[in-house]
């Protein structure tokens, strides 16, 4: 019996695309002010397609598994399509996370959006999905790590 299912355990024990890049086209770092968990993602983008993604994460099992899964999803996607990724999709691909751990998947989702935001800013690109997206404000608003206490209390 494990708190996590086999797919989650697989991505947690053997995370895909771990690392950093020499000179990435976009960097996203998203941290939770509540639990101190943090994800960093580097993206390589060629002709509007994400050709590679590398991540590093400080966080719980589901944060690591979600980050790993998220990178496998977005590699090969166009930037537009990658922006459509939601944390719900990551959870689905992982075949579910424990209720109290759903929020950990937001870490990956947000870090990717921030990386694309970074890419858009440096390359003067505009994406509809990023309109009104303010990565600095978000950190304040979103309390990403809801490790369960808030819900159980």
């Amino acid at each position: 019996m494990n708190m996590y299912n086999d797919t989650v355990m697989d991505h947690f024990m053997n995370p895909r695309n771990v690392g950093e890049m020499e000179d990435p086209d976009g960097i996203g770092i998203y941290g939770s002010p509540t639990c101190g968990d943090l994800m960093q993602i580097h993206l390589k983008i060629e002709d509007e397609v994400i050709t590679d993604a590398k991540f590093k994460a400080y966080g719980c099992g589901s944060a690591i598994a979600s980050s790993s899964m998220a990178t496998t999803i977005i590699i090969g996607l166009s930037v537009e399509d990658a922006l459509k990724l939601t944390n719900g999709e990551i959870v689905d691909k992982l075949e579910g996370l424990p209720e109290a751990k759903i929020h950990c998947s937001v870490l990956a989702d947000m870090a990717i959006k921030k990386a694309i935001f970074d890419y858009a800013e440096t390359n003067n690109k505009h994406y509809k999905a990023l309109e009104g997206f303010d990565p600095y404000e978000m950190v304040q608003e979103e309390h990403v790590c809801i490790c369960g206490k808030d819900e159980e209390k």
Binding site: T34, C60, C147, K149
Partner: peptide, 18 residues
């Protein structure tokens, strides 16, 4: 746990108190 070892976290972040 995956390796068969049972311990607990000090911070209890995961053992469900945030």
């Amino acid at each position: 746990d995956y390796m068969g070892i049972s311990v607990s976290t000090g911070s209890a972040c995961s053992s469900s108190s945030g």
